[in-house]
């Protein structure tokens, strides 16, 4: 086997590792969410996507994006957008 073949074997192994990592991450996040809901606690919609996602959602809401504003209100997530007084 040449060095190039080994390089491609490493690419395949890296791809496999990424597959396993993302799958485990996904399952872990989903089970954490289920745990929170089962405890009767409120689930923060941005728990795993972070403050950047929250800030983008907040900006859309404050900029009066009528579709997203309606969606956030219907889904009852406005309280998680970090808007003072909400």
């Amino acid at each position: 086997m040449t060095g190039m073949t080994w390089l491609m074997v490493i690419v395949v192994l890296a791809w496999t590792a990424l597959f396993l990592y993302f799958t485990m991450h996904d399952l872990k996040c989903e089970s954490k969410k289920e745990e929170i809901i089962a405890k009767g606690e409120e689930l923060d919609p941005f728990l795993f996507t972070g403050e950047k996602a929250r800030a983008e959602a907040r900006e859309a809401y404050l900029n009066n994006d009528k579709v997203l504003k309606h969606f956030f209100e219907e889904e009852d997530v406005v309280k998680f957008l970090g808007i003072e007084g909400k």
Binding site: D26, E30, F48, T49, A53, E56, A57, A60, F72
Partner: peptide, 9 residues
């Protein structure tokens, strides 16, 4: 904003 990152992992 509404689907990928809301309740996203």
């Amino acid at each position: 904003i509404a689907e990928y990152n809301m309740y996203g992992n």
